[in-house]
C-alpha cells in the first residue's frame, strides 16, 4: 500500500519536474525566435526562473529515493564492516535530519516573504506561495529519506557518485 502511494508520489513529482523542464526549454526557444523579429516574450526570464525552481524542488524526492547525491567519504571505504555499518546509520540519520531542517527552512522563508509582502520583479506576483511549494517538495524528500532509513541493511554497497542509470533498471 505504502509502496504504491510512494510510487505515485514519485510519478507526480517527476511529471511536475518534467513539465517544468520542457516549459523552460520552450520559453527559451520562443523568446530566442521572437526577439530578432521584434516580439520578445515579456518576462521570459521570470517564467524560466519560476520553472527552474519548481523543477529543482520537484526533483528533490527523486534524488533522495535513488540516492543520487554527490558524496566525498574520503576514508569511509576503508572502514571495517562494523564501523562501516555505524557510519551508514550515522550518515543516513544526519541526512534525514538535514532534509527535515531544509524543509523547515523553506517554510520559514515562505513565512518571511509573506510577512514582507515580497513581489517578483517583472510580474509583481507574491513570492511566498512558490517558496511554500518548494517546502512541500522538500517535505516529500524528507519522507523518502525516512523510508531509506528502514532499508539500510539490505541496500547494496553505495556507489561513490550518482551514475547515469543502467540500461537494465
Amino acid at each position: 500500500m505504502i509502496a504504491k502511494i510512494n510510487l505515485w508520489i514519485i510519478r507526480i513529482c517527476t511529471t511536475i519536474a518534467g513539465i517544468a523542464l520542457v516549459f523552460m526549454g520552450a520559453i527559451a526557444f520562443v523568446d530566442s525566435i521572437g526577439r530578432p523579429l521584434g516580439h520578445p516574450l515579456p518576462g521570459a526570464s521570470e517564467y524560466v526562473s519560476f520553472a527552474l525552481m519548481i523543477f529543482f524542488f520537484a526533483a528533490l524526492p527523486v534524488v533522495v529515493r535513488d540516492d543520487a547525491h554527490i558524496r566525498v567519504g574520503l576514508f569511509s571505504d576503508l572502514y571495517r564492516p562494523r564501523l562501516m555499518r555505524i557510519e551508514r546509520y550515522f550518515t543516513a540519520l544526519l541526512e534525514t535530519a538535514a532534509f527535515a531542517a531544509f524543509a523547515w527552512m523553506m517554510f520559514d522563508q515562505a513565512a518571511r516573504l509573506e510577512r514582507f509582502g515580497t513581489l517578483s520583479v517583472f510580474f509583481e506576483i507574491p513570492m511566498a506561495p512558490w517558496v511554500m511549494a518548494a517546502g512541500v517538495f522538500t517535505v516529500v524528500a524528507t519522507w523518502f529519506a525516512l523510508i531509506r532509513l528502514r532499508h539500510l541493511d539490505t541496500e547494496p554497497h553505495p556507489h561513490p557518485h550518482a551514475l547515469p542509470d543502467e540500461e537494465d533498471t
Binding site: I70, R71, V72, G73, L74, F75, S76, E87, A98, F102
Partner: peptide, 13 residues
C-alpha cells in the same frame, strides 16, 4: 565530508 558520506551539499549548507 571525509569521514562520513554525508551529501556534500547538505554538509556545506
Amino acid at each position: 565530508i571525509a569521514f562520513t558520506r554525508v551529501p556534500l551539499g547538505l554538509a556545506m549548507m
